[in-house]
Write a protein that binds this DNA or RNA. Structure first.
Lengths: 333, 333
DNA sequence: GTCGGTTACGTCAACGTTGACGTAGGAGGA
DNA sequence: TCCTCCTACGTCAACGTTGACGTAACCGAC
């Protein structure tokens, strides 16, 4: 910047004015400075600028999801990114791997870089680190899972209602033995979906069979094992409700391996690519992922802009997408 | 920091020493400073620190891919992120949407934040903005597509060789009419895969039928149209080589709609989730995405650490994964 | 002609941190 | 005893930028 000022024979302050399109620079000087900046390949230093400016904004937000390579997470990231770009804001992204220690470290890293706000998919268990960061004043929005502490916005989907609807659809087709396969119980979404499952059973007048409930299935492999065990029961389920997409994939693998994919009904929570291309197509509860991301980004930016209205828990509706697997009737033998 | 210093009754410089674990602070003082920092909730400001430090590192790198919600891109991002975390480095991520203007703007944004280096999936067409940034001294590694300018590392896969192998496999099964469906011709990968296709045909002693080549298929919809047209030919292809994953999906949809998925062979470039769950499973050329990401990250970090050896073009081998669709023989009617 | 107002600059200090360097006090050796 | 060296601090300035404020020149109005 000093070099540009010297070359254009003005003060650095005037260069600053030109760069930021502030008034107080004559047209001729503006042109001279622009030319000098171009010829020297000058790039303003945003970090220095934000250090000095009164608003102290870094025009950067942090995004802390479980696994950026997961389609759900990456679609969410993309939605947040689009909204951020719209505001001239860049995104620092990290994967917490659902590990509180790692999440906490990443949060400190983001904080050290003075991000203007964060969008977090909270790791399971206590949220002390998140709460602490929030209490330091960092604008924060939780996605997918709500905070266990107060004063913080979040965006989730209709986990319970949509799960209930899925179970009700299976029941209405005549299924009486509907299994629940869920992710780790520490996850709020898992619990909600399980509650929805229970509500669905109750509403349909079905009684819960405990041995048809398998949880703690983190990853497709564990889901495969669980599905295998379920199908080996003396009275196996005629329908499966899988409460997470990797679990759905694991269950599908087993059904397919046993040639049951046209006989055992399956509804999964969370859509996944090509679910429509399988035979049968997989009926799923589809979350509005871009909608969730957009909403989350809108909330952070509103808070960053000083919105002090009471915290919001936005719920973005999910929809049941019928593709075949969830419309299979129980075998009549 | 001043507050911490005041509370611990030392100078800010001593606080700095304690925070950075530098020698020159007595054990008692260290403890006092630590306690003060804790009680005040002090967080060092990395941007101010990097402004002042001599190495001028921001401990942040930029990642500029085409679309972060694309599974290929997000898997790559994750691999880079893992390697970065290992170095205590955070990742600023952006989607260029294969738009040079947008890519250039994002590059300027990254540069303004003084990232230590960038990993870029170059947008199609000229690479003036990339070259300019590179010439400013920013460590840069291109992934998926090589630079059109010199002095820059890149990591790609065996586009040509693997495409040739795919075509040779189809030819060895007896296919003589093998179609090529490719993405936009401005993309280097598209061109390479097409060249591999030509080499395969030549090596198998087959002659190229121009009407079996369709390119410029950006997205599954265009691929569907092209596949439909191909199958409507008087002498339709008995095998398809689809050179990008969305193109593969589009082609699959059409084959399925026409009931040809067990009769027309299909090999796609790039794996995608659940390709093994379809009927038939889709034979693909699978890139080693984590390997590419890891290598790219290693290269940037080496350059950031001052490695001045000649630029490298790393080639990470892809593998043909046989799942059924690529092993279909031509109908004998 | 004088005055208030505006425009187009410049000067200075500060944002939070650290490199360079200074200094006081104690340990150790000749 | 005196000098040297080391340790444990502190002081100062600077990184690149901008807010606050100053100032010189010019304009129009009375």
């Amino acid at each position: 910047m000093r070099d540009v000022a010297a070359l254009a024979k003005v003060s650095t302050k005037t260069v600053s004015r030109v760069i930021n399109d502030l008034p107080g620079a004559g047209p001729e000087v503006v042109e001279r400075v622009r030319a000098a900046a171009r010829s020297l390949g000058y790039r303003p230093n945003l970090t220095a600028s934000s250090l000095r400016r009164s608003d102290r904004r870094s025009a950067t937000i942090g995004v802390l999801f479980e696994d950026l390579s997961n389609p759900f997470d990456s679609a969410l990231l993309r939605a947040v990114e689009d909204r951020a770009r719209h505001n001239g804001v860049l995104v620092l992204a990290g994967s917490s791997e659902d590990d509180r220690t790692l999440q906490s470290e990443l949060l400190v890293s983001l904080s050290a870089r003075r991000v203007d706000g964060v969008v977090v998919m909270a790791a399971g268990g206590h949220q002390d680190a998140l709460q602490q960061e929030r209490e330091r004043g960092t604008p924060m929005v939780l996605v997918d899972r709500p905070p266990t502490f107060g004063g913080t916005d979040c965006v989730t989907t209709t986990n319970r209602d949509s799960s209930r609807d899925a179970v009700l659809q299976l029941a209405s087709l005549g299924h009486r033995d509907i299994a629940f396969l869920g992710d780790r119980r520490t996850l709020w979404t898992s619990q909600e979906r399980y509650t929805g499952y229970l509500e669905g059973l109750a509403q349909a007048g079905l009684t819960l069979r405990d041995e048809l409930v398998r949880t703690g299935l983190h990853g497709a492999d564990l889901a495969e094992t669980a599905a295998t065990e379920l199908l080996d029961l003396e009275r196996p389920p005629t329908a499966l409700f899988t409460a997470q997409n990797l679990v759905t994939v694991g269950a599908m693998r087993v059904l397919r391996a046993r040639g049951l994919h046209h006989h055992t009904a399956l509804i999964g929570f969370d859509d996944f690519p090509l679910a429509d291309m399988l035979e049968p197509g997989i009926t799923v509860v589809r979350q509005d992922v871009p909608g969730i991301g957009r909403k989350a980004a809108e909330l952070v930016f509103a808070r960053i802009d000083g919105d002090t209205s009471p915290p919001v828990h936005a719920v973005v509706p999910a929809a049941l997408v019928q593709r075949g697997s969830g419309e299979i009737r129980p075998s009549t033998d």
